[in-house]
Amino acid sequence: MTTTDVLDVRAKARRDKRKRQSLFILYLTLGIAIFLGVWQVLSVWFPLYFPSPLGAVRHFTDNLMTSEWTRRWFAHANACPALIGSGADIPPYCSGYVLHLLVTTRNILIGAALGTILGLAAGLGSLVFPKIAEVFTPVASFFGTAPIFIAAPFFVIWFGVDVALLTTVGLITFYTTLLMYFFSRRAAENIPVGIIESALTLGGTPRSIFRWVYMPGTVPEIAGGFRIALAGAWGLGVLVEVLGIQRGGGFLIAMWRFGVGLVEWPAAVVALITFFGVLAVIVDGILVVGIRFLTRWAESGRRLGL
């Protein structure tokens, strides 16, 4: 007969747990290392199109606050007349990347917020007033199946490229509204029938069912939908700026596209795109924390509504 000491077993369990944790970190670093390595190799193979990771970061930090290239572009476009003189009184948009990036971020977030409010109002409102769904669903599903990019030219024609706020925010709002409408409807449809029936037999009125069943119950899926919508919004928002708006991260990409300086352009564009990728990851991370809090009630697997 063998005897096993309980303490030994517990110590082993603890060791195993530590081992799993360190393995997780190992794989994580390995993944990031491979990613950066592949990027580095690509930059060696295609130096014209790929900057090295360090090169991209360097370009970004060099141009963040003051950028020779933006100055030159605006001077060329006669938008920064002071540049020719002393260099004092330079309008902020001529100085560096930072303001452009902030403008884009602001516009995209405003658009996403507005669209979410509208989409949720329509989607959740249609639960209380089914007529809203009858009016909204056919229209939304027609526009929803079309690739969203085709809506961008409309906004460019109607609101012009001078008033960036209306164009970018308008497009993002339109896109987010459609998505959030569908996500909120689907979230409500996925609430089990039994739960609704139970609420009804407990005397639930449409109003109380909306407040205490639909509103909290749809949070995981709506939150998941919002993450998807926002992830798409970054690309769309930057792209609509590429179409000709004179401010924002998309403008910077467009500026480099027309080749203000041919040596640095791949570094510039890749750096800008990566910046938006990192920004999207950070915003998504903040969202995840918020969503985790809102969905404390759910089983851990369902918390993020995936």
Binding site: P192, T201, A298
Partner: peptide
């Protein structure tokens, strides 16, 4: 009022 066979307790409350 009714008590159901399935689990109909509201998980979010």
């Amino acid at each position: 009022a009714m008590v159901f066979q399935q689990d109909t307790v509201f998980p979010w409350l």
